[in-house]
Design a protein around this nucleic acid. Structure first.
Length: 326
DNA sequence: AAGGATGGCAACCGCTCTGCA
DNA sequence: TTGCAGAGCGGTTGCCATCCT
């Protein structure tokens, strides 16, 4: 393909390796600026705008090109989108190695998925595909204490300690991504943003990230920020025994939003209603760390939300780095 | 095996912002 | 103060690969 816009001396379409090289040389020599001079100097038949975009989205160092968004990154995007709206560039600054375009694409995919699932749930087809969407979560996670990753226990892992459970989560994520529980999670998120996030912005900037991420595919490891994002636990629904019931009820779209507001927590043993909301953002201190530094079971106050959770669920939770330890 | 649906991604477009003369 | 050019941002489009029927 010779590009689809060779008219008037301006090339459009996919970039060739030679063009990339020219662009890289320009940046090496002059830095990431004076984009329009690239064309005016006859180096490339691309607009300055196009050159800049290419650099920002593909050629810039430390980009995580070709890596899917990790669960942690997804969580960050969801939270920040709820707070900032569609400020993709701003959100991208919280995600080392990700560009605004990445975030934007991720979000629009997510929205499309949500729209489609919602539409599907209004007129539930009885196709096998639909059933698979609803059931895949259970199928792929059978025999695992940690259920679907979209709903798994929150993790505060570093890249080095991310092992089997994480990879299981990742692979499971892709297979579960289209299920109804995912939809619930997506819709519920805005309610889950803690006001604490309002200070988040400036804190992050001050703390900064490690820019020298030479292995962009490694799970990104912010020095502070992610641990300071309020620990959303929108995934907790998976622990509820009535998850299947949720799945079933989703077939009745009118019940969906009721479920978001409150969940009948009979499965928790006390029959009370549990609101999905800020109270889920208990400070991490609600967990008790064990001798290995892992987070132990949450302090089991009577009637706490965690009552009835399998105790080993918390074995998989890494402790967040202490904000005091730097 | 073929065709449609879907997801992921790269790139373009139009608008706004910013710095400068 | 104004106009211009460059840079940045968000929305949109189109292509391609994969999955599903």
């Amino acid at each position: 393909m010779e590009g689809y816009g060779d008219h008037v001396g301006i090339r459009k379409g996919p970039w060739k390796a030679e063009e990339d090289e020219v662009l890289l040389n320009h940046v090496k020599r002059y830095g990431p600026r004076d984009w329009s001079s690239i064309r005016s100097n006859g180096l490339l038949q691309r607009t300055g705008k196009s050159c800049r975009l290419r650099w920002v989205n593909k050629l810039r160092p430390n980009l995580k090109n070709g890596c899917k968004f990790s669960l942690e990154e997804e969580r960050v995007v969801i939270e920040l989108q709820a707070q900032f709206g569609n400020k993709w560039a701003k959100i991208a600054t919280y995600l080392p190695g990700r560009t605004d375009n990445d975030v934007k694409n991720f979000w629009s995919s997510r929205q499309k998925r949500l729209a489609r699932i919602l539409q599907t749930s209004e007129t539930p087809p009885k196709s096998q595909k639909y059933k698979r969407q609803l059931q895949s979560c259970h199928g792929c996670c059978q025999g695992s204490n940690i259920s679907c990753p979209a709903l798994e226990a929150p993790k505060f892992m570093s890249s080095s300690s991310e092992g089997e459970s994480s990879s299981r989560a990742q692979s499971c994520s892709s297979s579960c991504i289209d299920n109804t529980t995912e939809m619930i999670r997506m819709v519920a998120i805005p309610d889950l943003v803690s006001p604490k996030l309002h200070n988040f912005n400036t804190d992050l900037i001050h703390h900064g990230f490690s820019p020298a991420d030479n292995n962009p595919c490694i799970e990104f490891q912010p020095q502070t920020p992610l641990s300071e994002i309020p620990q959303l636990q929108p995934h907790l629904t998976i622990f509820l025994p009535e998850t299947q019931e949720l799945m079933d009820r989703v077939e009745d779209p009118s019940s969906i939003f009721d479920m978001f507001g409150t969940l009948d927590s009979s499965g928790l043993g006390n029959g009370t209603k549990v609101s999905i909301g800020p109270q889920l953002f208990e400070p991490v201190g609600s967990f008790r760390n064990d001798a290995n530094g892992k987070i132990g079971n949450p302090i089991n106050t009577k009637g706490s939300f965690f009552d009835g959770f399998p105790t080993d669920v918390f074995d998989h939770i890494e402790p967040p780095p202490s904000p005091l330890k730097r």
